[in-house]
Design a protein around this nucleic acid. Structure first.
Length: 450
DNA sequence: AATCCACAGGAAGTGCTGGGCG
DNA sequence: CGCCCAGCACTTCCTGTGGATT
């Protein structure tokens, strides 16, 4: 395969390096004894404990989740008597506390088991990160001992060998293993339900141990894809986490704010503002916590001692921009080329909407210009769907009668943001620059973009 | 009602990489 | 060293589809 060739603005690089080096030398001479972090670390004005606002923080109390915690604990209780708890499926939209509550319950049962001298193991697997049967099985194995990682290579073994090794390990160690499969839908959509079929059937192969599964999903319809046998085995019990309303989110924020901030740092309005913003987004408490954290960080950067609503507004735009930036900079080259074609084509049609075929033909011209080997239309059709899912473009399936069935595609990010991002992203700006130079594209669009 | 368009998107296959095993 | 396996990105082939047009 041909390597993607890109024309970097290499002339600029030596200049930038030179200026940076000169500035650095000057600084080095002027302040040899001073460290740049000295002034920054002199005093924490706002935060007492930043961690309390992070998405991975597991608090000791969960406002408005007492019922769920009680139900959860009741289902897992048999583990403390040496019996296998039912498998559980947990549903709820993002930011409803599913993962945090599950981690909390896992910690609690481990503590209790240690006190009562019971053998309970817990594993937490995020199926979006570990989304292969091989990875899931090895991660479950780690539940029993940390050396397992050294025993099982991260690739190479046949899957049934890993499965057999896991069975052996489980029986050698005994006890009850509680395995949490977070974002379980990602595992199923990628691999089918084979892996769940084997996992849910694992207990019948075990003599000296038992495994219970906790599946977490934000897609309530995900079980409809499952084999009926897997469905009934996995969903022995189910719990649903309803979205929080604005008042509940505000209470959660207030609880975390007392842990995270020093006293009287946050304007009361700030919490309700963050809460109402997050409540609009389907009661996502995680979003509210992020918004609060970033608002406080911005206030801190401005050397303020109080977080005002002004910073929440600022934080909101920072969050949106950062999200888009991080997505774009990490896109593979063909995704960037596809995005560039939609941007360049925007305006070709009166309503700004273009079809898959139009995007593909522009994409092919881009590949030609950059000496990239072009991918098939089938693949680019998938790339378009991926970009749509990432929120960079809008793609809507439409039927144009005799003109066939296609997607109407438009760019989802605003023009100012595009210009800023183009200036930052060498690959994207190169593509557009080259298109302008070649002069084969819609001039009106280029004039707006460059 | 039949036809036809321009794809959508599922399924199966390919080629490659990175690993283990005998 | 050659073979086997899992995983990934992609291609090829195929069937399905909604609605304007005939």
């Amino acid at each position: 395969m041909k390597r993607p060739r890109l024309i970097y603005s290499w002339q600029a690089i030596p200049k930038v390096l030179l200026v940076a080096e000169l500035l650095f030398m000057e600084k080095r001479q002027n302040s040899r004894s001073r460290n740049v972090f000295d002034s920054l670390m002199s005093e924490e004005r706002i935060f007492k404990n930043r961690e309390a606002l992070s998405s991975t923080f597991v608090p000791s109390e969960f406002p408005h989740r007492n019922d769920e915690i009680n139900d959860f604990a009741n289902i897992l209780k048999p583990a403390l008597y040496g019996a296998r708890p039912s498998n559980i499926l947990i549903y709820g939209q993002t930011g409803t506390g599913k993962t945090a509550v599950t981690k909390y319950i896992s910690d609690q049962i481990m503590q209790k088991a240690a006190k009562e001298n019971k053998k309970i193991h817990t594993a937490y697997i995020n199926c979006k990160q570990t989304n292969t049967p091989y990875g899931v099985l090895t991660n479950i194995g780690k539940t029993y001992s940390s050396e397992w990682e050294d025993v099982i290579p991260h690739a190479g073994w046949r899957i049934d060998k890993v499965y057999a090794a896991l069975k052996q390990k489980a029986d050698d160690n005994g006890g009850i293993a509680i395995v949490v499969l977070d974002e379980i839908d990602a595992l199923v959509s990628k691999n089918g339900d084979d892996i769940l079929y084997h996992l849910t059937g694992l207990n019948s192969d075990l003599n000296n141990s038992k495994i219970s599964l906790i599946g977490i999903s934000n897609d309530t319809k995900f079980t409809s894809w499952l084999d009926p046998r897997v469905k009934s085995r996995l969903g022995e019990e189910s719990l649903t986490f309803a979205p929080y309303n604005a008042i509940q989110i505000e209470e959660i924020l207030a609880q975390r704010a007392t842990l995270a901030f020093k006293d009287n740092i946050v304007e009361p309005l700030v919490l309700s503002y963050c809460a109402s913003k997050a409540a609009q987004e389907h009661g996502d408490a995680r979003k509210a916590l992020d918004l609060l954290r970033i608002s406080a960080e911005l206030a801190e950067r401005d050397n303020r001692e109080i977080v005002t609503a002004k910073y929440v507004i600022k934080a909101q735009s920072v969050m949106e921009k950062d999200q888009v930036r991080s997505i774009i900079t990490t896109l593979p080259i063909h995704h960037k080329a596809t995005l560039a074609s939609t941007i360049v084509n925007q305006g070709k049609r009166e309503n700004g909407q273009q079809t898959t075929g139009e995007v593909y033909s522009t994409y092919k011209q881009i590949c030609k210009l950059f000496n990239l080997e072009d991918l098939s239309q089938r693949r680019i059709s998938n790339v378009i769907s991926e970009l749509d899912m990432q929120g960079l473009i809008h793609a809507k399936i439409v039927s144009l009668g005799r003109q066939g069935r296609t997607k109407f595609i438009s760019v989802a990010i605003n023009e100012n943001q595009i210009q800023e991002l183009f200036a930052e992203d060498i690959e994207l700006s190169d593509i557009i620059e080259e298109l302008t130079r070649s002069g084969t594209y819609i001039r009106s669009t280029q004039m707006r973009l460059i």
